[in-house]
Nucleic acid binder design. Structure first.
Lengths: 346, 346
DNA sequence: TTGTATGCGTTATCAG
DNA sequence: CTGATAACGCATACAA
């Protein structure tokens, strides 16, 4: 049964013996057309296997029922988690998700946003609050709602967490245990305001407690386990050796954990290690990782839900949502070893 | 400086003093328009901040420069990795990626594919080779190329691996060490042909070696660490206890590893544990996990690259690509304990 | 090399 | 409640 092209509104209209306009309405505003007509149209549409052409619909109506998501990378547990929730939420509301990633390159983000806009997305979701004015201008010119996740700046909407406080809290936890010599392994700070805030939060807590954190004790690394290991390796060489290492994200902290053990430095007896994020693995590594829970999935859900609201009724007062975070104490942190100054040289 | 709407081809044409058609050509086929005109048009376009409207372009040309990707979930290291590579590759070629997930529900996959088609994607990428005829009919009617990943069936293209062999290889490795009592923790097999193939591969190796694998020794679980733990817990209760447990994916194997240690069953001295996938964590858990490397990132890259080829020149002879896999022996497997029958009851 | 005119499949604004 | 018909923004065959 060779069927020509994919059937269109016109085909359904002809078969059902009504006008093309009626079919369009029947599908979009079912309660404005006569029940009999409606049923007939629906039957014909189903039989013909009619699938609406969203591009045409978008062109005509100005709404594409698609939203764009721009993340640094999908290959990261937290963004994958949030993306999955966003996808699910939007999809259930009949929206499609267009995803782009920029791998922490601001220029790439701008380009990606332009492309997404060009494809006619009705809304835009991004990560972080730091981006060039030009990028924001693009979004404003397109007049589509924008929501920032994890971190956000005025005047746009955001669903975020207090990354600064996350850093502060985990540092405070270690200070409370009596640690005074710290090391930090974090991602590259230049294009990552989440990491920047966290490290600043750590610094704030230390400064407040009168503890110094030399730049040589902060190791910027790519965001993977192996880098967490090498960052930790460098910190372990320091004399005197830190008694506490904070990974500004769990992946790095877990790498640090592994490296410490590989070198025979026991956690938490000889060194305490803590992270931020609370990814799935954090509770399962040995020893289980003390960390700060960042609700990635909920960030995704809330963001998507709010996006749907904005699409439904634009021009609301901007949402500035900061989700609660919470210290999760597990087994990778404790008091520093008693003989603080007795570290083996080399 | 209040600018009305987003500028269109017409605006650029007026400012540049040429026709709308010329602008269209200048942007799409630069070598077919006079250099002087071209430069002028480009200048005006840049100054006006012209962004092409892809929906209109798609409607008019029939090509949307977007491809659809349907995965079970993004919240899984292997799919996140592949998706990231696909996104990057397509994006660099000027294509956008539309992502949908179905969470292992065949009906949801069909619906997602219909939506994606409705949005006018030029190509479709899916995971696995098992889906209802109706779904394939949708794709054929739309006449867009389809590529299957991980597993695939004729007559469509696929970029896959031999999941059956992956299971076989890892089982063979354990058999070679002398194991005779096996347990398997796997995902739900019903809607997952990758897992099904792997388990069948395991079965094939065992059968070949004359080793039995009772159904009670196969634990189907959701795909996360916690489930890997409970699956392992159940297997450890068996009398006599298995001396080897295979996780049909690393996440489950790692969960099993953790549970075994939590119960004081040492790996690999008392029990050997192996996985399949070789996710990032596999090399970093303790003891490091013996597994089979499945090149998720390369699957993504090759799939995207082939999709671009198909979009460039349709009607090629279908690609049936099976990427090599390889056993990665680490420290979670060894010979079974000598006193095979002396297991502590309960 | 450039301009003109038509159509892509829907939506939406009118009359009827 | 239903039917014409004009946009929507761009691509492209055809004409100049």
């Amino acid at each position: 049964m060779p069927r020509r092209r994919t059937p269109g509104l016109a085909d359904v209209a002809r078969e059902a013996g009504v006008s093309i306009a009626t079919v369009s309405r029947a599908l979009a505003q079912p309660d404005v057309v006569a029940k009999a007509t409606l049923d007939r149209i629906r039957a014909v549409a189903a039989e013909l296997g009619y699938v609406p052409n969203m591009r045409a619909s978008a062109l005509a109506s100005g709404r594409s029922r698609a939203v764009g998501l721009v993340v640094p990378t999908l290959n990261s547990a937290i963004f994958a988690q949030a993306s999955q929730e966003i996808q699910k939420t939007l999809y259930n509301a009949g929206y499609q998700l267009l995803i782009a990633s920029h791998e922490y390159e601001p220029a790439a983000e701008t380009a990606a946003i332009a492309q997404l806009l060009s494809h006619g997305v009705d809304g835009l979701i991004v990560v972080g609050g730091a981006r060039p004015q030009a990028t924001l201008r693009l979004v404003e010119d397109a007049a589509v709602p924008l929501i920032q996740m994890w971190e956000g700046v005025q005047p746009h909407d955001f669903v975020a967490v207090d990354n600064h406080r996350a850093g502060y809290v985990v540092a405070r936890h270690l200070l409370d245990h009596g640690h005074t010599r710290f090391g930090v392994v974090c991602g590259h700070l230049r294009n990552n305001d989440r990491q920047r805030q966290r490290v600043q939060g750590i610094r704030a807590a230390l400064t407040e407690a009168g503890v110094a954190l030399n730049d040589s004790h902060v190791s910027e690394q790519p965001l993977n386990i192996a880098s967490g290991r090498s960052g930790c390796a460098a910190l372990l060489e320091l004399v005197p050796r830190p008694t506490a290492i904070i990974g500004a994200m769990d992946l790095l902290a877990i790498g640090a954990l592994i490296e410490a053990h590989a070198r025979g430095v026991w956690v938490p007896m000889q060194i305490s290690i803590a992270g931020i994020d609370n990814i799935e693995f954090a509770g399962h590594v040995f020893p289980s990782l003390t960390t700060v829970n960042i609700p990635a999935a909920e960030i995704g859900r809330r963001t998507a839900a709010h996006m749907l609201e904005l699409l439904r009724s634009p021009g609301q007062t901007p949402l500035r949502l900061t989700l609660p975070i919470e210290l999760v104490v597990r087994h990778s942190t404790s008091a520093p070893p008693e003989a603080c100054s007795a570290t083996s040289a080399t």
